[in-house]
Computed example of a mutant assay.
Amino acid sequence: MEGLNCWEYFMCGREAGGVNSQEFGACPASTFYKHNGINGGKFSGRYCWTVEATLCDTKIKGGIEEKLLSCLHCSFFKQVNYEEGREFTLMHLEK
C-alpha cells in the first residue's frame, strides 16, 4: 500500500484541482514535480517540508528555515518517517 500524500492526509483541498485550490491556490507540494517519488510521494506530497509556501499549522509557511522545526513535530512528517523507515529522505542533495 502506498502512503498518503500530505493533501490526502490533511484533507486540505489545496491539491491541484482540489476544492480549496481556486480560493487559496494549489499547494506547491501538489505541483512541484522535481521531487516526484521521494518517500514514495506524488510530486512533493511526501516531501512537503522542503517546499516553500505549504500550509502548516493552518498557516502558509515560507522557506525551509521558517518551517523545518515545526515540521519535525508534525504528525504527517512523523508518519512518513515511520512508513519509510531506513529509506526515509529528510533532505535530498542534488548533484
Rank of each mutant, 00 (worst) to 15 (best):
E2M: 10
E2W: 06
G3H: 02
G3V: 05
G3P: 10
G3W: 00
G3Y: 04
L4A: 04
L4W: 01
L4E: 09
L4C: 01
L4N: 07
L4F: 02
N5R: 11
N5Y: 03
N5M: 02
N5P: 06
C6R: 14
C6H: 07
C6Q: 08
C6F: 02
W7S: 03
W7T: 05
E8R: 13
E8I: 00
E8Q: 15
E8N: 13
Y9W: 14
Y9E: 08
Y9L: 01
Y9F: 11
Y9A: 04
F10Q: 12
F10R: 15
F10H: 15
M11C: 07
M11W: 03
M11H: 13
C12L: 06
G13K: 03
G13D: 03
G13T: 03
G13S: 04
R14C: 01
R14P: 02
R14I: 00
R14W: 00
E15N: 14
E15Y: 08
E15S: 04
E15W: 02
E15P: 01
A16I: 05
A16H: 10
A16W: 05
A16E: 14
A16L: 08
A16F: 04
G17A: 11
G17E: 08
G17N: 14
G17V: 02
G18W: 00
G18K: 08
G18I: 04
V19W: 02
N20P: 00
N20S: 02
S21G: 12
S21E: 05
S21I: 02
Q22A: 10
Q22I: 03
Q22F: 02
Q22K: 15
Q22N: 14
E23N: 11
E23T: 09
E23S: 13
F24N: 14
F24A: 07
F24M: 07
F24V: 03
G25N: 11
G25F: 07
G25L: 06
G25S: 09
A26C: 13
A26N: 14
A26V: 09
A26E: 11
C27S: 15
C27K: 04
C27I: 05
P28C: 11
P28Q: 15
P28L: 14
P28D: 13
P28M: 11
P28G: 14
P28S: 14
P28N: 15
P28F: 06
A29F: 01
A29V: 05
S30D: 13
S30Q: 07
T31N: 06
F32L: 07
F32Y: 12
F32P: 01
Y33T: 12
Y33G: 09
Y33N: 13
Y33H: 12
K34Y: 09
K34H: 13
K34N: 13
